[in-house]
Design a protein around this nucleic acid. Sequence first.
DNA 1: ATGGTTTGACCCCTT
DNA 2: TAAGGGGTCAAACCA
Length: 426
Amino acid sequence: MERKGGAPPSTAARPRNNIRSHASTEGVFNGGATVGYSPGPMTLLSNLFGDGDECKSFSELLAGAIVDPTPPQFFLDSPSQAVEWSNIRKDKIINKMVNVREHYMKESDAAKGHFGMTDQQMLAQVTHSNVQIQAEHPFSTAVPATTLTQFHSPSVNADKPNEDGYNWRKYGQKHVKGSDFSRSYYKCTHPNCPVKKKLERSLGGHVTAIIYKGEHNHPRPHPSKTTRGTLTSTENSDKSKEEMSSQMDLESSQATAEHGSGTSDSDHETEVDEKNDEPDRKRRNTEARHQDPDSLHRTVAEPRIVVQTTSEVDLLDDGYRWQCEMHGFTVCRSYYKCTTPGCNVRKHVERASTDPKAVITTYEGKHNHDVPAARTNSHTLANNNASQLKEQNATPNETHRFSSRGVGGYEQRPVENLRLKEEHIT
DNA sequence: ATGGTTTGACCCCTT
DNA sequence: TAAGGGGTCAAACCA
């Protein structure tokens, strides 16, 4: 790489006394200053499956997942992984999962057919609790933090850090040890905005993952004000998307206002591959890529976008229409497919492990169409009045408005999605 | 003058 | 306790 800048000739003499002094927000992210908040696999699984009375409705939801004969993709990948899982939770959950897997394997052909997704499509789907998905594995996950929010930008171009409408300043880059990946670190340039994001790129420069952390405490900058005009012409000219952008701005503002500050003190993100249950997080990040070289190719086309949110605003309702995908033989879970014909965008919604109010949504692909007008309107209306939204959400019956979409599932909002929302406001 | 990038060094968490 | 590595800093440089 051509060196445009330059490291100080004598960094050893550089004063570093204040390196962590301004870490009020920094610590929020670096996982260091925030005292040991890094849930491990046990915690994650415990939260994922519910181990008590916590997140009851969500636990029920997850319990349903256990009953669901459709195992997550990772569970099918390797029997040994299933064994590892059992080492984590040897209780009922794992036993059920094993049974599920056995059952599922018997139905492998048909079941895989039900998955209806290619490996590529499975990529980035993601995660579970506050999770981070990484490119190396279809179900790699991560743990998060509690209040991590970034709003989905459906047409984001990952190759351009601020094509999501915000302005970013790169503050670091690292080569991912033992791999051909490099990771770039960006901060939102808006004053006092704590949001950061990481872009992982393959050797060829293709973005394989985008990980947002934090919550913008400001509206999205006007496209014309974004640095270097990195918004694409399509975006700039796309009224619908601008409207959506505005909606997201509003959501962001509301979310921020309702949360008091952009981030929680407990904000923290740990990039992991929890469901692989590899004990070494660091190793996971590097070895997994080697173990699955094909993942590189799979992720080149469409980087994953991980959205972590705890906003009380309906972030799950992102303006697009989603149809729940049937996985297995029972009701659909948290996997959705854009209902627009020809659009292959999918998303996966999951509950955060560390914060029952947090929800992680992982998007895969780009919408090749505008936000549905009708949905846009309702979405706008829904978000133009936070209090109104709260009232709506506070009335469970009113949130249970989903319609059957015929074969394959329901249009959002499906039951589990609704449950997430209900829990969100309780 | 301003703001973004580069990159070696450093901090500190995890193992 | 030590090692490894992720995340970050910040001087130098570029646009």
